[in-house]
């Protein structure tokens, strides 16, 4: 196996390029994806490589071009629809929820919608209330949609390739602050199945469940703090929100007997609530403490840096939650 060091954005680029090489039905569409090489340079060089028929710049009209993508998928193409930000997917919410997710069902199985809707989600650096939405829980609620949230370049590439080949609509949520993260990944082709959690760091004392940027926060910020106190935490990244690898998470919790579930989004009906519910059922007899969730505060995310920090999960919050489930508070 040959390794190559790539940035997160480059891993996504490779995934799309490889799949477009592999399948002529795959194409990319979105705002600034062509001439500008992508708002976050994810599609860098793709227009030059694949031409304007397969790398399509759109007007600022998410509802329209998302609908266009759905129609294209219904007629046999495999569109990748890029939202400059998943916040703008809300403009296309009706298309996604009513059409992308439901057409296969409502057409009696006649029209699958094999498309990927991707872009950055969650908070970035002070982009304020309207541009910091964590939309994964919105979409995960809708039968017919899959939701994928990679945290590393390796996962991003392998999961995006699988998502493009999936015959269902997939919401693929990246993170602006992770685009510059680099990692050595295989130069050879590989795929990662959807619905498979990954143990990023093994441990025995407590299970930490986090995805996307929160997985980074835990690995780089929380785990070193815990190690100082002799706490060996296991960090598990579900990678796919839906389908959820319950067994992968439960295996870890049965080992450590306690878990902290961290998500960047809000608490109420959040992804962590779903995970906690399933873990309570799957691991009830193995739990030594109630599960604890760490989430964003119940307010629109402020622009102010101190308030933004105070609203989002921080290292100290997770450390405190870990001590709580370990009864060390």
């Amino acid at each position: 196996m040959t390794l190559q060091k790539v940035l997160f954005r480059e891993a996504l680029n490779q995934a799309m390029c490889e799949e477009m090489e592999r399948d002529a039905n795959v194409f990319l569409m979105g705002e600034e994806v062509g001439e500008y090489d992508g708002p976050y340079k994810v599609s860098q060089g793709m227009l030059a490589r694949f031409g304007p028929k397969r790398v399509v710049d759109t007007p600022i009209s998410e509802n329209a071009f998302c609908g266009l993508g759905i129609g294209a998928a219904m007629t046999g193409l495999r569109p990748i629809v890029e939202f400059m930000s998943l916040n703008f997917s809300l403009v296309a919410f009706d298309q996604i929820v009513s059409n992308a997710a439901k057409t296969l069902y409502m057409s009696g199985g006649q029209f699958p919608v094999p498309m990927v809707m991707r872009g950055p989600g969650g908070a970035a650096a002070q982009v304020a209330a309207q541009h910091s939405n964590c939309v994964e829980s919105y979409f995960a609620q809708v039968p017919g949609l899959k939701v994928v949230m990679p945290s590393t370049p390796y996962d991003a590439k392998g999961l995006l390739k699988t998502a493009i080949r999936d015959d269902n609509p997939v919401i693929f949520i990246e993170n602006e602050l992770l685009y510059g993260v680099s990692q050595e990944i295989p130069a050879e082709e590989y795929l990662i199945p959807l619905g498979q959690a990954h143990v990023r760091v093994e441990g025995s004392d407590v299970t930490l469940i986090a995805y996307s940027r929160m997985a980074h926060l835990l690995e780089s910020g929380v785990l070193p703090e815990l190690r100082k106190e002799g706490i060996r935490a296991e960090l598990v990244d579900p990678r796919t929100i839906k389908p959820l690898d319950l067994e992968g998470l439960a295996r870890s919790v049965r080992k450590t007997h306690r878990a902290v579930i961290v998500e960047e989004g809000h608490r109420f009906c959040g992804v962590g609530a779903e995970i906690a519910d399933r873990l309570y059922s799957a691991c009830f007899d193995d739990l030594d403490a109630p599960l604890v969730r760490v989430t964003q505060q119940e307010n629109p995310l402020p622009y102010s840096k101190p308030l933004e920090t105070a609203s989002l999960p921080q290292v100290a919050d997770v450390v405190q939650a870990v001590k709580q489930v370990l009864y060390r508070l």
Partner: peptide, 18 residues
């Protein structure tokens, strides 16, 4: 209620935790 953090030390702690 048992999930409630009876032992959470202070209201100053960020309520999003726990």
């Amino acid at each position: 209620a048992a999930q409630a953090p009876a032992a959470l030390p202070a209201p100053a702690a960020r309520p999003a935790v726990a």
